[in-house]
Design a protein around this nucleic acid. Structure first.
Lengths: 136, 136
DNA sequence: CCGGATATTAGACAAAGTCCAGATCGGCGA
DNA sequence: TCGCCGATCTGGACTTTGTCTAATATCCGG
């Protein structure tokens, strides 16, 4: 599957999102790279040639994608949020010094022994983050 | 064990931290409550009566406590970091709507099947966060 | 009591993110 | 094609969390 801009339009529509220019560009930035990007990085990518998309739109759009389940939010660094185009269940490996963030497939990872949830609560998600550092 | 200010001085010393007024107050705020507090909350608590401790000192001190292993940092909310006086191995339950954060004892939780780390890397910590929401 | 090292401070600054009022776009009916 | 209207986008002011710095205060050994 190639992440062309045309395919992005379809992807957006299938998630009930009106495919505008800016939204297609932002989706394309995320999906063609298949990487974890911060809002800042998205903005930089989208505006490489000439300024095309405002900060407000980048933030609005990422929030919209989040609500519509198109991307996932990864909170590992207190200073910025990363957006993850991979929404299938998986965990994360975070290299503390370099800030590099990569996926850990959830397929073989088993988490057991969690206590029952408090009454009236549903799990929204389980985030597992392995923080690693280069041996110095 | 009571978390009196006098005991705080001992605790700080045992962690190789010079026990000053401000540090004792900040440690007392965290340990007497046994709760997850943000820097803002710590500052509010410490300065309830009359302004006693500056913002810079609160941040410096929390960072110092962190380095010395007296507290732990919990990153669950993109907008602020929480500090956790409980340094024994445990996980977290985060109520998304209320922002309430509580501990999950790690004793019975087993995480298995994690892939091997990349060469030259050591694990600094594994954070497991269960995000829950009230059934609406 | 002195001097140097250690802590604290106010306030300027930086970065991420939010908010708003006005401008613009784009699809649709006439 | 034209004009309208809701949806979208925008610049820029603003907020919040956190950092930095240079000056001051405190502590301690001699």
């Amino acid at each position: 599957m190639h992440y062309t801009r045309d395919n992005m339009a379809g992807l957006l529509r299938s998630h009930d999102i009106n495919p505008t220019h800016q939204r297609i560009e932002i989706a394309h930035a995320l999906f063609s790279r298949q990487e974890h990007l911060s809002a800042d990085q998205v903005m930089a990518i989208v505006n490489t040639r000439h300024s095309e998309t405002s900060k407000a739109t980048v933030y609005n759009t990422l929030k919209l994608f989040l609500e519509k389940g198109l991307v996932r939010e990864v909170i590992v660094d207190p200073s910025k949020v990363f957006f993850d185009p991979n929404t299938s269940p998986h965990h994360h490996l975070y290299e503390v010094d370099s800030g590099k963030l990569s996926d850990i497939d959830a397929e073989h990872v088993v988490i057991s022994g969690l206590p029952p949830l408090p009454a009236g609560m549903v799990t929204e998600g389980i985030d597992l983050i392995v923080r690693v550092r280069r041996t110095s």
